[in-house]
Design a protein around this nucleic acid. Structure first.
Length: 511
DNA sequence: GACAGCGCATTGCA
DNA sequence: TGCAATGCGC
DNA sequence: GTCAG
């Protein structure tokens, strides 16, 4: 019997079923590779016979209705009939009123962090409770990538991320997440302790390897069909013999042994836990672990008091910000800004702009049409905004950003802050950027990401003897500026670089 | 041998 | 105190 | 670790 359901965890809402119906369904879905589970909150997908959302609300926790995929049980019957995992969307439980917003998908970004209720008591600061590795549920991958994509010749995949379409979640997502564990491991110096690392030699290699894994994952991210064989994978750019071998292992066993081992490594988990703090990277976190023997965030806070504020609000900062909240934050800031100086416009960038359902922070680029590079007002306005937040008790901490420095000379100003909305305690990381109007859209491109996308924009620009930076596009030869029309918006930036337009939601070139 | 490239903050050394 | 080197974030 | 020169 083919494994159609691919170990999907399935919960059945018992309403309208007899016990024997349930037994029958259970048998069918088990035969086809699914797992019937007792708790809806752990399910990848929820089956029901209830035809309306109102009825559903009586039978299922309303928060689950929004966070889980709930489909009519006909979906299962059709999957079995077609011997394929079908796109669930046509089977979603219809809303009762057509005026209500339709069920958006995908609802959830990652399985682990958002399942933790926000603001719970913080005993989540030890590595054993913290899972830094993502695992996207199979149902979500299915939801994001219906099987309608046409296949391509792997070797024709563009070599630069800025020339490819990279969705938020891709059809080979689980494979990529498996490879990404190895990337993270390499990025953190494999198992080298800091001492042996300081003796130079090896570390640089690991970083290069990490980069290689990033590129391989990035290429896979844009690959439109499910990888079925090593020979297919081998011809994809940036996948050489070593990574092909890992992919082979994944294809035959469903996982990569090394990755699974790494996921359980206490040291790696601790090191990654420390890196959730702004300003702590691979170097510092290893120093905390190996030299100061830190094991929890409290240990780290003691070792470096400047991190205490972040540790205090750690669970807030770890709680993903749902998509709908992001514009509220932007509106709050722009309203305050209007009072200081009217006429500002802004674009929310970062992962929000790339279409993610949840974000870790909020990036906003502001400008005034009247604000040009030579005017000094922008830094004053930014300072005033920060002061205003302080008086409103919205500001918790400034993580970075100063009025001096050469970026300020170029008219670009930024503050990375920690703040909360009025009458709320939940802390949010916000990156505020002020750009002169001449470079507004260049700046938006620069702050939209993803990392790989930006890297390859630069690489592409260099090929044209141009330099791309968030403070403008210039010629490599003499440094002279290339003017980009701001009236034409973001596409003008792509045009200036000779790039085909890629939607922000298709710039998710990182894992 | 190259792998993006720059601004900001901190540290260490003269 | 000033300046270079290093780490970090995007 | 992969690619290009």
């Amino acid at each position: 019997m083919p494994n159609i359901l691919g170990y999907l965890k399935i919960y059945i809402i018992p309403t309208k079923y007899s016990p024997s119906d349930i037994r029958q369904l259970s048998a069918e879905l088990t035969i086809h590779g699914g797992q019937l589970i007792d708790h809806p909150e752990r399910a990848d997908i929820i089956l029901t016979r209830l035809m309306g959302r109102k009825r559903l609300a009586l039978a299922l926790d309303p928060t689950l209705i929004d966070s889980k995929i709930v489909v009519l049980d006909r979906w299962l019957a059709d999957c079995i009939a077609h011997e394929a995992l079908l796109d669930h969307r046509p089977y979603l439980v219809p809303p009762d009123h057509s005026s209500q917003p339709t069920h958006k998908w995908p609802r959830k970004q990652t399985a682990s962090p958002s399942t933790r209720p926000p603001n719970q008591h913080n005993n989540t600061r030890s590595p054993s409770d913290h899972n830094p590795f993502k695992t996207t549920s199979p149902a979500l991958i299915l939801a994001s990538f219906p099987a309608t994509e046409k296949s391509i010749e792997p070797s024709t995949l563009p070599r630069l991320a800025c020339c490819r379409k990279s969705p938020s979640i891709c059809i080979n997502q689980l494979l990529i997440e498996e490879l990404d564990v190895i990337r993270v491991w390499k990025e953190n110096g494999e198992d080298d302790t800091l001492e042996s690392d300081l003796n130079q030699a090896g570390k640089k290699d690991d970083e290069k390897h990490a980069l290689a894994y990033s590129r391989a994952c990035s290429a896979l991210k844009a690959y439109p069909t499910k990888i079925c064989s090593v020979s297919e994978a081998q011809v994809i750019p940036f996948i050489g013999p070593k990574i092909a071998l890992q992919i082979g292992e994944y294809l035959s066993t469903g996982q990569i042994k090394l990755s699974q081992t790494l996921r359980t490594s206490v040291r790696l988990r601790s090191i990654l836990l420390f890196q959730t703090l702004h300003g702590v990277g691979s170097r510092l976190s290893r120093e905390f672990y190996d030299i100061h023997d830190c094991r929890t965030l409290e240990d780290v806070a003691n070792a470096r008091p400047s991190l205490k504020v972040q540790v205090t609000y750690w669970s807030d900062l770890q709680t993903p910000i749902p998509r709908y909240e992001v514009p509220l934050i932007a509106k709050f800031l722009s309203d305050e800004l209007e009072m200081i100086s009217p006429g500002c416009i802004h674009t929310i960038c970062g992962s929000y702009r790339r279409g993610r359902e949840y974000s870790n922070d909020v990036d906003i680029v502001f400008t005034y049409p009247a604000m040009n590079r030579s005017s000094k007002v922008s830094s004053q306005v930014l300072d005033q905004l920060v002061d205003r937040l302080r008086t409103l008790s919205a500001l918790t901490d400034i993580l970075s950003g100063s009025s001096i420095g050469s970026n300020a000379l170029r008219g670009l100003h930024q503050r990375f802050i920690m703040m909360s909305l009025p009458r709320q305690t939940r802390q949010i990381r916000v990156d505020i950027i002020f750009a002169p109007y001449e470079i507004y859209w260049v700046c938006v491109v620069g702050w939209t990401g993803s990392t790989m996308f930006e890297r390859d924009i630069r690489k592409h620009a260099n090929g044209l003897n141009l330099k791309f930076a968030s403070h403008g596009i210039s010629r490599l030869s003499d440094g002279s500026e290339i003017a980009v029309s701001q009236e034409k918006g973001e596409p003008a930036v792509f045009e200036a670089l000779g790039l085909e337009w890629i939607e922000p939601t298709e710039r998710n070139a990182d894992v």
